[in-house]
Design a protein around this nucleic acid. Sequence first.
DNA 1: GCGCGGTCTTGATAAAAATCAAGAAATCAA
DNA 2: TTGATTTCTTGATTTTTATCAAGACCGCGC
Lengths: 189, 189
Amino acid sequence: MTELEGYIHHSFGIPHNEVDEIIRFFQPLKLRKGDYYLKAGHRSDRLGFVQSGILREFLDADNKEITKWISTKGYFAVDLHSFLFEQPARWHIQALTDCELWVISGHDYKRIQQVIPEWQRLETLFIGKCFAALEDRIVSHLALSAEERFQLLHSQRPELFNLVPLHYIASMLGITPETLSRLRRKQVS
Amino acid sequence: MTELEGYIHHSFGIPHNEVDEIIRFFQPLKLRKGDYYLKAGHRSDRLGFVQSGILREFLDADNKEITKWISTKGYFAVDLHSFLFEQPARWHIQALTDCELWVISGHDYKRIQQVIPEWQRLETLFIGKCFAALEDRIVSHLALSAEERFQLLHSQRPELFNLVPLHYIASMLGITPETLSRLRRKQVS
DNA sequence: GCGCGGTCTTGATAAAAATCAAGAAATCAA
DNA sequence: TTGATTTCTTGATTTTTATCAAGACCGCGC
């Protein structure tokens, strides 16, 4: 069973036979380390699900890069705003390692809705889940210090700190690489 | 035409006759200043749309209140996670002034889907729009200083600063009331 | 192996923001 | 109206975080 099947089955309690039907709309895609899955400003018409590897979502602000999110196995790779509203992408998505994705085109995405009644509900729940996760993240910025946000991320995704350059993680936390370095040292001792 | 009709019509380009059908599922609700529309920990099974008045979404963290959002005319009043996943609410929603809402129950919400085919797409676009707005807000915390976030909010919702206690706005920006006060003085001079 | 670019750490310093404390101003209720 | 409460501002100080600068480390290609 692929990550994608597991995700749909477990997250939403969709039975295996329906999951199979949904899965068929997705195509496998391999990326090499450094490849761009998406470039800001371009129209994107596909939604990807990460089977393996690591991707970084980032944007250029002023003269610095802001890493908005790092996606690993089980996350989606998409600029949802671009995908849903057929607008140019607002950020880049680049492979930090070789990656395997499951990808669906906007066209096929619309076809799912006709073939699988369950999909409508699934779609709402999927976005709703992402929405709630973002709400939590907002709250973490309103309620927590840099150190607390670091602790939280470290407890939620400990593996990340061994997999990607730390300055990307720092940016994702909204702190500088130097501060992250000091927080790490503090934590060890 | 109510705010809600205008919202649905303009945001999603739904024709007026279909808007009328959707509107019928909503019931008017009046709140008095200080009333709770939603209490954290309770099950909520309704989605509200603000016709008039001001509501504050907040939660208790440690010993302090975190104001997550302030909703005025044209915003929704709902804990989406609670509404979609039938979970206890994660925050409070309280009326800061007398309010008029348009409210739909979870039950009627599901009925819309049967009556109006267009609704499915509308729902996805609605949540997608909220999602994108939250993404922007995350980025504002990663890329901007307290002063820049203040400037941004002040340019986006200038009226807010005359309508609600400033310490709620400070909390929503992730800063202290004292800092907000100083940023305001700085801006004037 | 060697050099090189990128990464990470560390220290010194500066800037930003929080905290603590006090008082003024506004609001609200009796 | 008056007193109490909340809100807002201001100043002094501390804490947190960023910035600047330097050097160590590490992996990779030649």
